[in-house]
Design a protein around this nucleic acid. Structure first.
Length: 425
RNA sequence: GGAGAGAUGGCUGAGUGGCUGAAAGCGAUUUCCUGCUAAGAAAUUGACUGGGUUUUACCCUGGUCCGAGAGUUCGAAUCUCUCUCUCUCCGCCA
């Protein structure tokens, strides 16, 4: 959520930055400012009435305790009360209108981003690794997985529904090996390993920005205020919700392996084959809470942490800096890591590393104090995948495939698989 | 699932209608004191927010907040109702 004070103070700057994302947002800022003026007038009026009420009530109390009557004061109070009725309905109403609009406004993009409407304007920052040159026709991962009997799409659908897949045998082992490898790496990089709840309440989803705007993207538990997490970012970021940390606590590095659940509403015919886009998938998430002045550097470091995993697995990838129009709702700056899929002959996102600035921290009220005298300040939050496990499995199947249908195991994973070198049917 | 108890500031914990934004203790900060440390003394110490002042900061002056929401009352941490959560015991269970 944007800072209302910033909107008041520098409306033109806010509008200019938001228009880089989407020009239609400018009107919303104007709306907020208009309501804000009205709201503050109403608030002032209400507070003046409250002041009077408090004064008179005190006088009534004083008189009554001395056995005197206080009819004049009581009459005046009755008048004030009826005036307050109207205003005390209006004031919170205006405030709620303001918040409702504010909740739907995305974060300001960082000033140095390329302005663009969609992924076509994203900027390639770097490329790593060599694209494998097969002397046979490379298969796509779903084909390879079926042939090896490690991906069972039909039965996944039977058990649940479409976009659910049964992973088994060496596929399941590979999945587990990756989870362990990623967690070990995260630990080495200083991240605190967590096993958080994977059902969270609506307040937590609000804190990270999934609610209220993106309610249709998450699965909700019936008759409970609980949702399946779409990413471990939600529970991890919310660990310190409504808390004031001390400066020494920062930066905080957190990581967790969790399954993630997404309804994929609106992506009906996208990626229907394979395990690229599933309702349930495993991911290791990296989260950082830090001071404002450190967030740019911490963001770079977190992205490097994610990149180093692809490098260790020797998977070719490119690093994209997202343009203003392609970024997620809460991000102010975002790198996507895209891994090469030889079967599909294209790069696909495998990690998204975002700096949220204070956008999430304001919603979740995560603050810190520099010393005992200073005011509480919002932290900055940063997160990224390190990495999406299912997509890594898919990438390994495609990049490490052999002509005979077998798949080599990346060297770095062999210790995790009892020194297995090759997955064969 | 059944029965009961409870929810107050960074923490412990008083407070059953006005003198309570909140006793007391702990912790923290500042100052004083002893040659350092330890001990001791004093003061300060919640969050959010409107307005004034202001480059900020500081300051001044209001308002709201004692789990959440609604109600009673001139006045609610305190009374009533609804909800949420926590704890204890019993039952069930990985």
């Amino acid at each position: 959520m944007l800072d209302l004070k910033l909107i008041r103070k520098e409306p033109d700057k806010v509008k200019e930055l938001l228009s880089r994302r989407d020009t239609s947002l400018v009107a919303k800022i104007d709306q907020i400012i208009a309501i804000d003026i009205e709201h503050r007038a109403a608030l002032q009026e209400k507070q003046e009435l409250e002041t009077k009420r408090n004064q008179l009530s005190k006088e009534v109390g004083a008189k009554k305790s001395q056995g005197q009557t206080a009819d004049t004061e009581m009459q005046e109070l009755a008048q004030i009360k009826s005036k307050m009725q109207a205003i005390s309905d209006k004031e919170p109403d205006l405030f709620n209108q303001q918040i409702a609009i504010l909740e739907g406004i995305p974060n300001l993009p960082a000033e140095d981003l390329i302005v663009g409407a969609n992924e076509e304007a994203n900027q390639e920052i770097s490329k790593w690794g060599e694209i494998p040159n097969f002397n046979f026709t490379a298969l796509e991962h779903d084909e390879i997985g079926k042939n090896l009997d490690i991906l069972d799409f039909e039965r996944g659908v039977k058990i649940a529904k479409s976009r659910f897949t049964l992973i088994q045998k060496h596929g399941a082992k590979l999945e587990r090996a990756l989870i362990n490898f990623f967690l070990d790496q995260a630990s080495q990089n200083g991240y605190r390993e967590c096993v958080p709840p994977i059902l969270v309440n609506s307040t937590s989803l609000y804190g990270t920005g999934q609610l209220p705007k993106f309610a249709e993207d998450v699965f909700k538990v019936e008759n409970e205020d609980l949702y399946l997490i779409p990413t471990a970012e939600v529970p991890l970021t919310n660990i310190y919700r409504d808390e004031i940390l001390s400066e020494d606590d920062l930066p905080i590095y957190l990581c967790a392996y969790t399954p993630n659940f997404r309804s994929e509403a609106g992506s009906a015919s996208k990626d229907t084959r394979g395990i690229i886009r599933q309702h349930q998938f495993n991911k290791i998430e990296l989260v950082k809470l830090c001071k404002a002045e450190d967030s740019a550097e911490e963001h770079e470091k977190l992205t490097n942490n994610a990149e180093s995993l692809l490098q260790a697995l020797k998977l070719p990838y490119r690093k994209m800096l997202l343009c203003t129009g392609d970024m997620g709702f809460g991000a102010s700056k975002c790198y996507d890591l895209e891994v090469w899929f030889p079967g599909q002959a294209k790069y696909r996102e495998i990690s998204s590393c975002s700096n949220f600035g204070d956008f999430q921290a304001r919603r979740a009220q995560i603050r810190f104090r520099r010393d005992s005298k200073s005011k509480a300040e919002l932290v900055h939050t940063i997160n990224g995948s390190g990495l999406a496990v299912g997509r890594t499995v898919a990438a390994i199947l495609e990049n490490y495939q052999n002509q005979d249908g077998s798949v080599n195991v990346p060297e770095v994973l062999r210790p995790y698989l009892g020194d297995l070198e090759k997955i064969e049917a």
